[in-house]
């Protein structure tokens, strides 16, 4: 499983840096490290497709694969989930600190200054 996870990571890296749709062959050639079996790459691609991360288009006799969304889009989605104040919060993800409103932020800033002062005096 861990190995498949790493391969998924590498394949996504290839697709993100390619800038356009790639055939399985092109992906295989672009993957770093020892050459893999073509079927392994196809397995990884179908797993990524099932997860909704990779799209597949027919191009003549070959299939071309593309990343459905850029890495930044996925990062933004994860950040949204992490920052989301929805009712399930705490159960699925545990956020370290909730965002405070500007008034509280000002109050915290003075408490913070006090704390920093104390830390500098051991």
């Amino acid at each position: 499983m861990a190995r498949l996870g790493e391969l998924e990571h590498s394949v996504m890296e290839v697709l993100w840096s390619a800038g356009g749709p790639c055939t399985a062959r092109e992906i295989l050639d672009a993957l770093p490290g020892p050459e893999l079996a073509a079927t392994t790459v196809l397995t990884v691609l179908s797993r990524l497709e099932r997860k909704g991360l990779v799209g597949r288009d027919r191009d003549g006799r070959a299939h071309r694969y593309r990343a459905v969304a850029g890495r930044e889009d996925h990062v933004a989605a994860l950040m949204r989930e992490a920052l989301d104040g929805a009712s399930d919060r705490g159960a699925a993800l545990a956020r370290f600190a909730d965002q405070v409103d500007p008034d509280d932020a000002a109050a915290l800033a003075s408490a913070l200054a006090e704390a920093v002062r104390r830390r500098s005096v051991p």
Binding site: G85, D98, V100, A107, L108
Partner: peptide, 18 residues
């Protein structure tokens, strides 16, 4: 807690942080 601080819905749990 103070970084960014987009007001509104996201500040819901801010009181606990304080």
């Amino acid at each position: 807690g103070s970084a960014g601080a987009p007001a509104g819905a996201l500040a819901a749990g801010g009181g606990a942080t304080v």
